[in-house]
Design a protein around this nucleic acid. Structure first.
Lengths: 204, 204
DNA sequence: GTCTATAATTTGATAGAC
DNA sequence: GTCTATCAAATTATAGAC
């Protein structure tokens, strides 16, 4: 197919980059136009204003926040295996989208509160899977399959350990002084280290 | 004493709030002036421009990022006890400064890269303690006191589990639908849950 | 649909009186 | 030190030709 991207697609692509790098208030319409290889006026032709363009981009990223969770949660593997799979899959995903979490968190924190509510209402599906997962963990705990730890905290721990390195990346590299490639290596190790850590922590 | 705050202090106080809430690019000098009960001109009298005022504020917050670490690391308690103490102490600190991590991370990510370097050079003391802690963990692992897990990953895990709930707070409350007070309760529980989790994960 | 030119607004910063 | 008034620059948004 390799058909040239439509102008609208080019704009969205450019806007994603700019907003991701600078955040809403730091992003510049002019910069987005340049990235897209067009001029400002055309931005406003396709998307009325900065706010609307941002909403489009933000909603797109928000939908991606927990990819592939369904497959994992709905399978009939033991919960510990599901956690393994989640950790591996999620860290790989974040390596391809390293700025996503910080972007979402910052905009959720600084932006208007309606932003979250409207999105949660539409895209509750992923969140349903989170709740399902929590239930499954609770049941596994009840039947002694794993150690009794409050399920919500378990999920929090798992996600924390996956996401945090990406959020804290600049600090981490500043403190340890490790290189770009060492950091990548660290993330690769982390897929198994974190999975092991969780298994050990939940051993009955 | 109860002496009225000096104008400079009022400005800094106001600037901390504004920058913390909105970030550098989202903050408005006008808003800071209003919060401080003065006018814009006076801001520029005390701090030449927005950038300088921000640097002041940012450096202040940055210094606070790992409070009380020294006491914990330098004591001669077993490493696991130190981790307990760190978790309890750090979560309590973050409850009093819930927006600190996200603010630092976002500005480190979006701001000029010199920002980090200059601060790291000055305030390496806290980071030294982190490195000491990592060494202590490595040694504890070598003598079988804890399970053999790469020390850097252990520290990452500990910090992750403490910090992440604060970074992800809006998302967390959106997903689970829990109330403000329930969230506080969750954090309180977390002090012991996380400490336990780590102990279990590191049991030889 | 796309552009150039320009308006309208916001916002950081300064001049100068008190 | 503090204020009012104002400027200059940056930035979003629109008008109108092609």
């Amino acid at each position: 197919m390799t058909d040239a991207k439509s102008t609208e697609e080019k704009i969205l692509e450019a806007a994603k980059q700019e907003f991701l790098e600078k955040g809403f208030s730091g992003a510049r319409m002019e910069a987005i136009a340049q990235r897209a290889g067009i001029n400002k006026a055309l931005l406003h032709y396709y998307f009325r204003n900065k706010e609307r363009l941002f909403e489009e981009v933000f909603a797109y990223f928000f939908r991606q926040i927990l990819p592939g969770l369904r497959q994992i949660v709905e399978s009939d593997a033991p919960v510990l295996d599901k956690m393994d799979r989640f950790v591996q899959h999620y860290i790989d995903f974040l390596r391809r989208n390293p700025d996503l979490p910080l972007f979402i968190m910052h905009e959720l924190r600084t932006g208007p509160k309606e932003r979250l509510r409207s999105l949660v209402e539409k895209k509750m599906t992923e969140f349903e899977y989170v709740r399902s997962f929590i239930m499954q963990i609770a049941m596994a705990g009840a039947r002694g399959e794993i150690r009794a730890v409050p399920p919500l905290h378990i999920v929090l721990n798992v996600v924390s350990m996956c996401v945090f390195p990406f959020v804290a990346r600049p600090m981490l590299m500043g403190v340890t002084g490790i290189s770009e490639t060492d950091f990548e290596e660290l993330l690769e190790q982390r897929k198994t280290v974190v999975a092991d850590f969780i298994r050990a922590a939940l051993k009955p």
